[in-house]
């Protein structure tokens, strides 16, 4: 009888041991799955090793031990190094999840709709059409522009829709994943990243449409077209920064989400979207101070092959936006547990 008991114990020990190995494998696959899969694996492993603060050969051993998470009420800002390490690690972890979420959203968005992708460009197209009609009928008098007005208006409204998409995306994505956010602990960076992926995809399609329209007007190709996507990305960058800046308060109070479309509508008239920068009035000053102005001007210049006069401001705006993005990212991370606590289920 005793022997039998001992045997069972031994069996359990083996089983537990086996489980340990299993969970190690899971951890490995969690942390380094892509490392063994993709060609960028070496890089990934190097990054992981850096975060584990060891040499590459040690990275695997580190990952094989159990990861310990400690939750305390101490403020995160006390330990900025740890904060930044966690931020980057979460960003790395969330790439695949973000891709999955973006795929989910795009599929779901178009599966339940007949016109599908057409909805994406319906609004900017209609917007452009209204302005073309307004100008041609003479209801509003607009200063002449260097390119055909229809293209001017279309490029403006398409770029503007990229910017508003990017601005509205962070808070809309977060609100949409509210129920998941309070139930499952996952890197929230994935939500933003998935929003960016979707915005980029939509922006790409819009760019293609714009190029097609451009060619259908019989205008010549220019090498600076290749730079045009940079302007689109810059708009997404600025839009995302602005959008993420509003998330902490916007998640608590619904006012932000309500007022944002209105503010964007007003902002459109202070940006060279459907008309050129007015000269010599108080409005000119407003345009000059608007950080979006150089982005639109440069984008259009690249499109039409003109000299990009605002390139310097363009670079300044982008660099500032990048720095701010980092700051609002930290701000969001600090705010996340507070938001989750206050929005409840």
């Amino acid at each position: 009888m005793n022997g039998c008991l001992a045997h069972t114990r031994a069996f359990h020990a083996v089983k537990i041991n086996l489980c340990g190995v299993l969970s190690q494998r899971v951890l490995l696959s969690l942390a380094g799955n892509r490392a063994t899969q993709s060609p960028g694996g070496a890089w990934n492993q190097a990054v992981l090793a850096y975060f584990c603060r060891t040499r590459i050969s040690d990275a695997v051993n580190i990952r094989a031990t159990l990861k310990t998470i400690i939750y305390t009420p101490d403020p995160h800002l006390r330990n900025p190094r740890k904060l930044f390490r966690e931020m980057l690690a979460d960003l790395l972890l969330s790439r695949q999840l973000a891709f999955q979420l973006a795929l989910r959203d795009i599929r779901a968005q178009y599966r339940q709709s007949l016109l599908g992708f057409l909805w994406m460009i319906a609004l900017p197209l209609a917007n452009a059409l209204i302005w073309i009609l307004l100008k041609n009928s003479g209801v509003v008098a607009l200063a002449d522009v260097a390119i055909p007005y229809a293209l001017f208006a279309l490029s403006g409204t398409l770029l503007w829709s990229v910017f508003t998409d990017a601005t509205l995306s962070p808070i809309a994505q977060l609100m949409g994943s509210k129920h998941v956010l309070v139930k499952i602990n996952f890197p929230a960076e994935a939500i933003f990243l998935s929003g960016i992926y979707q915005t980029v995809l939509h922006a790409g399609i819009k760019t293609l449409i714009l190029f097609t329209a451009w060619c259908s007007f019989g205008l010549s190709l220019h090498w600076s077209w290749l730079l045009f996507p940079l302007a689109v990305l810059a708009l997404i960058l600025v839009g995302t920064t602005l959008g993420m800046l509003l998330t902490p308060v916007g998640m608590l109070y619904s006012d932000i989400q309500k007022v944002l479309p209105l503010v964007l509508q007003l902002l459109m008239f202070a940006t060279p979207v459907v008309f050129a920068v007015p000269a010599g009035s108080w409005a000119a000053k407003l345009f000059a101070w608007n950080p979006l102005t150089p982005l639109f001007l440069t984008g259009r210049h690249w499109l039409s092959g003109q000299e990009a006069e605002e390139l310097y401001s363009f670079v300044v705006v982008c660099s500032l936006a990048l720095i701010f993005l980092l700051v609002v990212w930290v701000a969001f991370r600090l705010a996340k547990p507070i938001i989750v606590e206050r929005i409840g289920t």
């Binding site: 951890l27 990861k67 310990t68 998470i69 400690i70 939750y71 009420p73």
Partner: peptide, 10 residues
């Protein structure tokens, strides 16, 4: 207040 320590995959 207090402290929670979680080891491993949750």
């Amino acid at each position: 207040t207090g402290r929670i320590e979680m080891r491993g995959r949750v």
